[in-house]
Amino acid sequence: MTAPLLEARSLRVEYRSGGLGAKSRRIALEDVSLQIAPGETLGLVGESGCGKSTLARALLRLLPVAAGELRFRGEDWLAPRGRTLRERRRHLQIVFQDPISSVDPRMTIAASLEEPLRAFEPALGARERRARIAAMLDRVGLAADAMRRYPHEFSGGQCQRICVARAMLPRPALLVCDEPVSSLDVSIQGQIVNLLADLQRDTGMAMLFISHNLAVVRQLSHRILVMRHGRILESATREELFAAPRHPYTRELLAAVPVLPRVGGPPSAMLGP
């Protein structure tokens, strides 16, 4: 087996509340261990409040880890601080749930997309930056004139493409997608899911794909983790998980998904691939 790209061992994250003296601690993640191999998509499912987003943020060092180990490419990923931390972050990018609130409404798309390049590749000249942005916009399926426009001129699906472009520009080794299609219409969800699958195939990056939508996770993931109450209950390959879920909670989750009775199936001539 190849060495994991990212590895977490017995991760614990706590949120503190209350004033001086009366501090109470809430455990958001407890004893979470996982590995993501290069090029792999790890799915993460669970209900709201189970700790999915907390885990994503902990893996990206966006919030403090109380205990446990985190290794990125074999190196201690909890140790870097300051400049080193910021530089390493280019390898771990994230796409959030709400695309509209994830881009600055006062900046043009070009200005938003320049930021990661300025931060992570300061040696690039203005012309090279533009060329990289133009190529990336084309790659995510947006017209070149998008550069001059502002976020409000785009629909939710287009905005998510912009967010994907921004995350992909620094050429990350791991892309974390935190409910990237949950706020999109059904007809648009497939477009973004297929785009992510294409990008992964082309770049060989790894993905952590978080969603409460089991069907979408099933489409993209090689392996899937099921979380509840801050713990991982089950870890299985996608085939195992859907064919033979082991944990009762996983079975409960699968049974709750409303299923469309497909009577004979709709005509297939309508849609392309």
Binding site: G157, S187, V216
Partner: peptide, 8 residues
Amino acid sequence: RLPTLPGQ
């Protein structure tokens, strides 16, 4: 691939 509807 997931079936999609082009456009919006």
